[in-house]
Amino acid sequence: MIVVATALLRADWVLAQQRAYPPEDAGGWEFPGGRVEPGETEPVAVRRECREELAVEVLPGERIGPAVALRAGLVLHLWTARLADPAAEPVATEHLGVRWVRAPELGELGWLATDRRFLPTLREHLDG
């Protein structure tokens, strides 16, 4: 089963969200996303998850970085996306908060281990 994560980009910024739960992950930073539901494509899941978690519409871009193995046969893929309305502001509907960061600031956040694996590729993408 595939899980998507979204590197939501605005110029040279990327959005991070801070987990509220479960307790062992609370306070950790991650990219928005979730499981691809039956019948969905990965880009459709990216749009749905960003709508649910951030209350914004996005335009999925490309898949970047490695496939990251998770527990119980789940595999995590990172997708780029941009806001459909560039003036829209994401809202933390299920998380403690959201924050826009630039490539040099990525290392300042306490990323969850799975999302941390995407940082080298994302830095290259933001700097490129």
Rank of each mutant, 00 (worst) to 15 (best):
M1P: 12
I2N: 06
I2T: 10
A5V: 09
A7F: 07
R10E: 12
D12E: 13
W13T: 13
V14H: 00
V14Q: 00
V14E: 00
L15S: 05
A16L: 03
Q18D: 08
Q18G: 09
R19G: 01
A20C: 12
A20E: 13
P23H: 13
E24D: 14
A26F: 07
G28C: 10
W29H: 04
F31D: 01
V36T: 11
E37Q: 13
P38N: 07
G39A: 12
E40K: 03
V46A: 10
V46N: 03
R47I: 15
E49V: 05
L54W: 06
V56R: 00
V58R: 00
I64N: 05
I64L: 14
G65H: 05
V68Q: 01
A69Q: 07
A69C: 05
R71C: 02
R71H: 06
A72H: 05
A72G: 04
L74F: 14
L74S: 15
L76I: 06
H77E: 12
L78E: 01
A81W: 01
R82F: 07
L83M: 07
L83P: 01
D85P: 01
P86N: 08
P86F: 03
E89D: 09
E89G: 05
T93K: 13
E94F: 08
E94Q: 15
L96R: 13
V98F: 00
R99Q: 12
V101H: 01
R102E: 09
A103L: 08
P104N: 12
E105N: 07
E105R: 06
E105S: 11
G107H: 09
E108K: 03
L109Q: 04
G110R: 03
L112M: 10
L112Y: 03
A113K: 02
D115W: 02
D115G: 06
R116F: 04
R117I: 02
R117M: 04
L119C: 04
P120S: 12
L122P: 09
R123G: 12
